[in-house]
């Protein structure tokens, strides 16, 4: 039940990514191209996600605990620091260069397209580089 529900949640998420167009770098890059062939679709993806997640989270987090786990695991950092800002800007630059973000690329892997494979390999490399840098520093 635990793993099956997780698989199903992944499937719902991936289907949302695919239907919404987030899976498609051409669409993502056109959303960011205000001065060019602008495609506003992705604003609606975010709107649709928040339209469900804002009230949904409110209901769920009012409960004592999740159904299949002992407790909610919420991030406890509150600090807005250079790491958060510089990291997010770096992410945005990479997103603008490649057109894939992690949530778009993982479902894209399932199409077996070599571009998605390459991007996810580089993404994994980037995560490991950052981890090594943090360990060294």
């Amino acid at each position: 039940m635990r793993l099956f529900s997780a698989l199903l949640i992944g499937l719902i998420f991936g289907s949302g990514i695919a239907l919404s167009g987030m899976i498609n770098p051409a669409k993502v890059l056109n959303f960011f191209d205000l001065a060019g062939d602008w495609d506003p679709s992705l604003a609606l993806v975010m709107a649709g996600a928040l339209a469900v997640a804002v009230p949904g989270y409110r209901l769920v987090l009012a409960r004592q605990r999740p159904a299949l786990a002992p407790a909610f695991q919420l991030p406890d950092t509150r600090r807005i620091d250079l790491k958060l800002v510089a990291g997010s800007i770096t992410f945005g630059i990479g997103w603008g260069i490649a057109g894939f973000c992690p949530g778009g690329a993982l479902p894209a892997l399932g199409t077996l397209r070599s571009e998605a494979l390459l991007f996810v390999a580089a993404l994994g490399g980037g995560l490991l580089i950052a981890r090594a840098l943090r360990r060294a520093g």
Binding site: G87, F91, A98, A122, L123, G126, L127, A130
Partner: peptide, 13 residues
């Protein structure tokens, strides 16, 4: 882009 995304999201959390 993939490398930048990986490093960025790691630091950005």
């Amino acid at each position: 882009g993939g490398l930048l995304v990986g490093i960025g999201v790691s630091y950005g959390g």
